[in-house]
Protein backbone atom coordinates (compact mmCIF):
# COMPACT_ATOMS: atom_id res chain seq x y z
CA UNK A 1 0.00 0.00 0.00
CA UNK A 2 2.39 2.68 -1.10
CA UNK A 3 0.84 4.31 -4.16
CA UNK A 4 0.65 8.00 -3.43
CA UNK A 5 -2.61 9.81 -3.69
CA UNK A 6 -2.11 12.76 -5.99
CA UNK A 7 -4.10 15.21 -3.93
CA UNK A 8 -3.03 14.02 -0.54
CA UNK A 9 -0.98 16.53 1.38
CA UNK A 10 -2.49 19.55 -0.30
CA UNK A 11 -4.68 21.33 2.21
CA UNK A 12 -7.03 23.96 0.86
CA UNK A 13 -5.11 26.78 2.51
CA UNK A 14 -1.88 25.68 0.85
CA UNK A 15 -0.10 26.33 4.15
CA UNK A 16 2.06 23.69 5.83
CA UNK A 17 -0.02 21.58 8.17
CA UNK A 18 1.08 19.09 10.77
CA UNK A 19 -1.75 16.58 11.05
CA UNK A 20 -0.40 15.44 14.40
CA UNK A 21 0.08 18.82 16.03
CA UNK A 22 -1.22 18.68 19.58
CA UNK A 23 -4.56 20.33 20.07
CA UNK A 24 -5.04 22.69 22.97
CA UNK A 25 -5.95 21.49 26.45
CA UNK A 26 -9.10 23.60 26.39
CA UNK A 27 -10.43 21.43 23.55
CA UNK A 28 -10.12 18.29 25.66
CA UNK A 29 -11.54 19.98 28.76
CA UNK A 30 -14.58 21.33 26.90
CA UNK A 31 -15.18 17.94 25.29
CA UNK A 32 -14.89 16.20 28.66
CA UNK A 33 -17.30 18.60 30.39
CA UNK A 34 -20.05 18.33 27.79
CA UNK A 35 -19.73 14.59 27.24
CA UNK A 36 -19.64 14.01 31.01
CA UNK A 37 -22.94 15.89 31.35
CA UNK A 38 -24.45 13.78 28.57
CA UNK A 39 -23.02 10.44 29.74
CA UNK A 40 -24.17 11.12 33.30
CA UNK A 41 -27.69 11.72 32.06
CA UNK A 42 -27.69 8.65 29.79
CA UNK A 43 -26.21 6.34 32.40
CA UNK A 44 -28.89 7.47 34.84
CA UNK A 45 -31.47 6.77 32.13
CA UNK A 46 -29.95 3.33 31.66
CA UNK A 47 -29.43 2.25 35.26
CA UNK A 48 -31.74 4.34 37.44
CA UNK A 49 -34.63 5.64 35.33
CA UNK A 50 -36.99 5.88 38.31
CA UNK A 51 -34.62 8.23 40.11
CA UNK A 52 -35.05 10.91 37.47
CA UNK A 53 -38.71 10.36 36.68
CA UNK A 54 -39.85 11.79 40.02
CA UNK A 55 -41.21 15.37 40.01
CA UNK A 56 -39.04 18.31 40.97
CA UNK A 57 -41.69 19.59 43.38
CA UNK A 58 -44.15 17.61 45.47
CA UNK A 59 -47.49 17.33 43.68
CA UNK A 60 -46.14 18.54 40.32
CA UNK A 61 -45.44 16.48 37.21
CA UNK A 62 -42.41 18.23 35.68
CA UNK A 63 -39.62 15.75 36.34
CA UNK A 64 -35.98 15.86 37.36
CA UNK A 65 -35.24 14.19 34.01
CA UNK A 66 -36.68 17.13 32.12
CA UNK A 67 -34.67 19.69 34.08
CA UNK A 68 -31.54 17.57 33.66
CA UNK A 69 -32.15 17.39 29.92
CA UNK A 70 -32.50 21.14 29.58
CA UNK A 71 -29.40 21.59 31.76
CA UNK A 72 -27.40 19.33 29.43
CA UNK A 73 -28.44 21.46 26.44
CA UNK A 74 -27.60 24.71 28.22
CA UNK A 75 -24.19 23.37 29.32
CA UNK A 76 -23.38 22.40 25.74
CA UNK A 77 -24.30 25.80 24.33
CA UNK A 78 -22.46 27.62 27.14
CA UNK A 79 -19.27 25.59 26.84
CA UNK A 80 -19.36 25.83 23.05
CA UNK A 81 -19.61 29.63 23.21
CA UNK A 82 -16.81 29.84 25.79
CA UNK A 83 -14.57 27.61 23.65
CA UNK A 84 -15.18 29.60 20.48
CA UNK A 85 -14.63 33.00 22.08
CA UNK A 86 -11.50 31.83 23.90
CA UNK A 87 -9.91 30.08 20.94
CA UNK A 88 -10.71 32.82 18.46
CA UNK A 89 -9.21 35.41 20.81
CA UNK A 90 -6.12 33.25 21.30
CA UNK A 91 -5.63 32.35 17.64
CA UNK A 92 -7.44 35.08 15.67
CA UNK A 93 -5.53 34.75 12.37
CA UNK A 94 -5.84 31.07 11.47
Amino acid sequence: MSTPDLEAGTPKSGKPVDPHAAISGISWVCTAVTLAAYFLLMLTVAFAPDAITRPIVEGGVTSVALVAGVAALVILVGVSTYFTLTQNRREPHQ
Partner: peptide, 20 residues
Protein backbone atom coordinates in the same frame (compact mmCIF):
# COMPACT_ATOMS: atom_id res chain seq x y z
CA UNK B 1 -26.76 17.49 19.55
CA UNK B 2 -24.20 15.90 21.88
CA UNK B 3 -22.16 14.86 18.87
CA UNK B 4 -21.21 18.52 18.45
CA UNK B 5 -18.55 18.65 21.19
CA UNK B 6 -16.42 16.12 19.36
CA UNK B 7 -16.95 17.93 16.08
CA UNK B 8 -16.42 21.47 17.38
CA UNK B 9 -13.85 21.10 20.14
CA UNK B 10 -11.69 18.32 18.70
CA UNK B 11 -12.14 18.14 14.95
CA UNK B 12 -13.20 21.50 13.53
CA UNK B 13 -9.69 23.01 13.42
CA UNK B 14 -8.15 19.89 11.94
CA UNK B 15 -10.91 19.41 9.39
CA UNK B 16 -10.74 22.99 8.17
CA UNK B 17 -6.94 22.85 7.91
CA UNK B 18 -6.69 19.48 6.17
CA UNK B 19 -9.81 19.25 4.06
CA UNK B 20 -10.49 20.46 0.55
Amino acid sequence: IMGWPVLLFLLSDRLRQLGR
